[in-house]
Structure formats: structure tokens, C-alpha cells
Design a protein around this nucleic acid. Structure first.
Lengths: 344, 344
DNA sequence: ACGCATGCTGGGAGCGGTCCCAAGAGAGAT
DNA sequence: ATCTCTCTTGGGACCGCTCCCAGCATGCGT
């Protein structure tokens, strides 16, 4: 049996290679009747164009890379990445792109891996996430002139990026707590070299200050976005007797609540707890976690759009997208009964 | 500036394309001196061969796919996958292969995705995991004649696969509990359509039966490899007043312990708990979880080896590798003090 | 000194597509 | 009826690399 190539399909459809190619790729300038005939042959034979040939000739691989700058362990335990990958992979499917995942753990040698990768033209562009401030990877990438976008991280102004409105979200949390009459606010931040973590702290601080309730620096503890880290941080914070704690992620919110409870305190009566993300952990606590919702999956789809924009029209300047956040009130700040009253 | 191609490198080194290619790919039949010269040019120019061209000409892409048949959410919350990906990705790097990850969630349309994928020759082969018994994906793959290996799942005998000695491991757990004098054994299994889960149950049952302590069917509860699922299952099991519970994964072990404690019982005095995997969750409980260790990362490296074997020498028949398991005793079965005595 | 292995090296032919350009067929205009 | 112009279509030239094969210069044996 002859190998199934475009040439062969064209032959079977009684047209030329060029015409077959046009028909298959949905380009116009093909008589409908002929297009039909070609597509029928494709259908029957189950022809699928050879990726390498296509990418060699077409100067485009239609593969997008997702580079996550984190330990494998971290990546595979943080629901944020689950949502992000979900969104990205959905968008890739919808746009006929293949997604390839790269986990960049080490800070050294492997660093050059992604750049090498891109030089091979294996991927058309890269979505980069979980980098930290001044990550060498970022400037290596921008220097190499490869199309890429950053997710959840501001980066330099001349780069494409998507992120949630972290400041605004944190401010929502702050105002919510103020409205509840809390005055002794504490916060467990993510690693501050991570820009999202930093902005959440900043937004929280500012919003409080704006209302004349400045955040006591002793009531700020830095953690690492893990439940355990947040637990430890909270244990410390509790010495300062806060009446509300803002955790920079839901996962940390879980740790915070556990620590509060273990200290014999009640949520939300003694200490109101609020998280960030609105991912699955927020629903697994008792009471459920009030949180600032960010559309994680959408972060992913927007990232894909931005990247394709960069790949397809490099001349269009990069742009930055900020997605809105919303407050989701649950039992960790407002007891159920009371909430119903509020709703009314 | 001229584009950096093999041709150009050859020209700079003053040799032919062929020679440059041989030098770069480490093939022999190149005078050492010439090879040096070529490699120097490569070094200086930073030449990286074009992936598509290479794969088109060489009939091999050097990309391996990892297909995980699970919800994104599940994948990104199960430490088992973290370890597996770690192992696979390490092995890929070591063998100069690129890893591409495919999450296959839906059971329908997207099912054909991997097959389509492979038809494009984008990946040379696939590592498949987390499939279930009679998963259509498996026969689709074997029918399509694409090289692939299965991880942690027996599959048909004529397929390459790696998995831990699940039966043996479960038997280790059983015997350990027996030695501790427990007689009222219970177990929380994984989803039984998953072959690993099924074998762990089987191994546990058989080992107990062999010692004349048959497993009471009412003390078997099926869960879904999640902590929550195991918690719920355990709540039920506790009605039967077991004095030991074998959880088919560490993550489930955590749920089991939580349920036991919430029921006001003590671990290990009232109920001994034992897990499977020896992954991070086992260390996060108090007391730490005794568990059956399987070398998850090694599962990954072996998978890559097997797959490359299939890809490179299709004529060699597929083979099945079973990795040994070991028992790791911790506080959830034997209190620290007592353990020290044992060690002595 | 001559023939013949042996070892390197260079050239050419693809791999399977995409894209550009020229040629052919109709349709509309004059 | 002739000439354009537009719409399709086919052919050829690559894309950048690998692989095969022929050509050449050595080295050796005799």
C-alpha cells in the first residue's frame, strides 16, 4: 500500500497536490464541488497531514509550549495550575494548536533548555508562568526574540501578559473585612518575589490604609502558597490576635483555617478568613472559604490568544490583559444565617 | 545575516553538509580534527538543528508523548503523577527526547485526538497511563500500530508496560499488619476498574487468606484515590470496627487517618493505618504513614526506556516490567518507641 | 611499483508539505 | 466576435535535514 500523503490524496481525488492542499486547509479559490471531492477522500482514507512536513514548509509548527517555572511537585499539587492548564489546553484544542508542557525546575543548566527548544522551531511560542521577579529566563526569552506571553506576572511593559486584577481583588477582600467590622487585619502572603503575591499584599495594604485602618507590619507573614507554609505562618500571626486573615490563595486559606482552629479559635466569629482564587480547596473547608475569585481558566485562554497574536502578527505591539476579580462570600467570613439576612 | 542552517555551518567549517551532519550527530567516519572544527562552529554560532526538518528527513521526531487519562483536576492533585512526570521527564532529557503531555479527559470525541496526533507523526510514541480496564483508547492505539507503553496498568500481554508489584506490595502490607497482631483488617481500595487498584485489593486479600485471616467483604470499601473519597469510605468501614486499614494510596491514607481520628479513635493503637506509594502525603500525617513504597519516578524512566525500545526496534517483542515494592514502617502502624525496640 | 581494501568526504535524492506563479477557462465588456 | 479580467488549477521551487552512494586519497600487501 502506498504511503498516505497529500500527493496520494490528490491523486485519488483527481486533482493536483496544490488544490488538495488548499481544499484541506480551507483556503478559498477552490470550487466547492472539488473541495468536497477532496474532503471526501480525506475522510475515507483518514489522511492526516504530516506535522513535520507541514511545519518545515509552512514555517509554523502549530505547537505552543507552556513553561512552568516550578518544581514538578509544586506544579502537581497546586490547583491553580490545574485550572490554568485546563484553560490553556482547551484553547489550544479550539485553535488547532498542540500543547507541549515544559517543567523548568532548576535555575541553572536547564534554563537554556527552553531557549534551545525554541531555536529548534519545535514550538511557535511559549506561555510562561510562575516565574519570579527578575527571572533570567524572562530576559533570555525576550532577548532571543521568541514569541512568548507571561501569565499571572506583570513582567516588563513591552511583553504580552495576562493576569488577574490582583490589587483590585485584594482590595475587595480588605473592604469586605472592613464592612464586617474587622479592624485587626492580618495577611499570609505568597512568596513576595512572585509578583502576584506582592500585588495582593500591596492591594490589601492600600485598601486598608485608604480607609484609615493601616495594616500592622507584624501582622504580615510571608509563606509559599502551600497549605503547610500558611499553617506555620498563621501560627505566628495568631500571637498578634488578628480578627481577620487574608490568605493570598485558597490553598493557603485552608492552612490558615486549620491553624486558627487548632489554636482553639472559631471561624468566622473569632477570626474571619478569606482566600484568593476560588478553586476547589475553598469548598473543602468547614465553613467554606470566602474568597476573591479570579478566572483561572480564562487566564489560560487569554494567554493562548495573546500568544497566537504574537506568533501571527509580530508587528502588532504586545499587550497586557488584566482580568477582573470578584468577591465570593462564604461561611469563613459571614455565618450562613447572617448571610441570608444580607441577601435579603 | 544568512539563516543559520546546517548548510551554513558546513560552509563555515569548510566541509560539506553531510560531513557536518555526521559530526554533529556523533556518527563515526569523521576525522577527529574535522569533527572538532565543525563542533567549534556549532558552539560559536549556537546552531541548533531545525526540529521539523530533522524529523521529516530522519523519520523520527524525538518527541515522546505522555497521555494521561484523567481529569486535569485529578492529574494536578495526585502526587503520583507528579512523581511519574518527574521520572519521565528526567529520562527524556537524559535520552535527548522532548516530552509532550496530553491530558485526555473526555471519553468521547477527544478520544481520537491521540490517534490523530500520532498519525501526524508528531510524536514517535506514547506513554499511556491511568487508563481503565477495557479502555477503548488502548485498543485504538494497538490497532493503529503506534508504539506505546502503559504505565501502572497490566493491559494485554502483547503490550509493553511497567508497573509496580502491586500484589506483592499489598501482601507486604497484609503481613506487616498480621505481625502486629491485627486480625480485623479493612481496606479502602482505588476505583476497581483501575487495574492497580484491583491488584492491590487482590494481593491484600490473598496474603491474608494465606495466613488464615480472610478479609471480611464488608470491610472493603471502594474509593477513588482521593483523600475525600477515602474519608467517606472509612467512615463507613469504621462501623465494622476494624483494627487496621490498608489504603491503596498514601493520599487515601491521609483521608483514612483523618476519618479515624475524627471518630475519636487513635492511630495506631486503635486502628493501624497503612498506605501505598510512599509519596509526600505519607509524611504529612501525624503520626507519619506506614506505607508500601513503589518507585514512582523509576516507573517513569523505565517507561521511557521501554518506549524507545518499541520505537527503535519494533521487531523486538514488547515486554512487561514489574518493579519491586518495599515496606516503609512509620508511626501509623508502630509507635515510635516500639519501633526503636524493633530496630535494635 | 601496482592493485586493492579502507576510510573520509561530497553530492544528490528525497522526506511531505506550502507557497508562488504562470497557464487555462469562462464571464463580462465593448 | 475579440479582448480583458477574474477564478481555478497545476507545476515547480524550496523548507533544512538525513541517508545513500560514488569518488577520492590514503595505506597496505605482494
Amino acid at each position: 500500500m502506498t504511503k498516505l500523503t497529500l500527493e496520494r490524496v490528490a491523486e485519488l481525488a483527481g486533482v493536483s497536490r496544490s488544490t488538495a492542499s488548499r481544499a484541506i486547509n480551507g483556503q478559498d479559490g477552490v470550487r466547492p464541488e472539488i473541495r468536497r471531492r477532496v474532503l471526501d477522500v480525506v475522510e475515507i482514507t483518514g489522511f492526516v497531514p504530516h506535522a513535520a512536513a507541514r511545519s518545515l514548509a509552512g514555517q509554523r509548527s502549530n505547537i505552543l509550549g507552556l513553561a512552568i517555572r516550578q518544581t514538578t511537585e509544586q506544579v502537581f499539587s497546586d490547583p491553580f495550575f490545574a485550572g490554568l492548564v485546563q484553560g490553556i489546553s482547551g484553547a489550544c484544542n479550539a485553535q488547532d494548536q498542540t500543547l507541549s508542557l515544559f517543567l523548568l525546575q532548576s535555575a541553572d543548566g536547564e534554563d537554556r533548555l527552553p531557549v534551545r527548544m525554541l531555536r529548534t522551531k519545535l514550538v511557535d511560542g511559549l506561555i510562561v508562568t510562575a516565574t519570579f521577579t527578575d527571572d533570567p529566563l524572562v530576559w533570555q526569552l525576550s532577548e532571543s526574540g521568541i514569541p512568548f506571553v507571561m501569565v499571572g506576572e506583570a513582567g516588563q511593559p513591552d511583553l504580552s501578559s495576562v493576569e488577574a486584577d490582583n490589587d483590585g481583588g485584594a482590595a475587595l477582600a480588605a473592604r469586605h473585612l472592613l464592612e464586617l467590622g474587622r479592624r485587626h487585619m492580618a495577611t499570609v502572603t505568597g512568596p513576595l518575589r512572585n509578583s502576584a503575591a506582592a500585588r495582593r499584599l500591596l492591594g490589601f495594604e492600600r485598601a486598608l490604609a485608604a480607609e484609615g485602618v493601616p495594616l500592622d507590619p507584624r501582622l504580615v507573614a510571608e509563606a509559599d502558597f502551600t497549605e503547610e507554609g500558611a499553617y506555620a505562618a498563621t501560627v505566628q500571626l495568631l500571637d498578634g490576635a488578628p480578627d481577620a486573615i487574608f490568605a493570598a490563595s485558597d490553598r493557603m486559606g485552608v492552612g490558615v483555617m486549620r491553624a486558627v482552629k487548632d489554636a482553639g479559635l472559631h471561624v468566622p466569629d473569632d477570626v474571619a478568613v478569606i482566600g484568593f482564587d476560588d478553586l476547589s480547596p475553598a469548598l473543602e473547608t468547614e465553613p467554606q472559604l470566602t474568597t476573591v475569585r479570579q478566572e483561572v481558566a480564562q487566564l489560560g485562554t487569554v494567554a493562548v490568544d495573546l500568544l497566537l497574536e504574537r506568533v501571527r502578527t509580530p508587528e502588532v505591539p504586545p499587550r497586557r490583559v488584566e482580568l477582573p476579580t470578584t468577591l465570593v462570600v462564604r461561611g469563613s467570613t459571614v455565618p450562613t444565617a447572617q448571610r441570608e439576612v444580607l441577601v435579603r
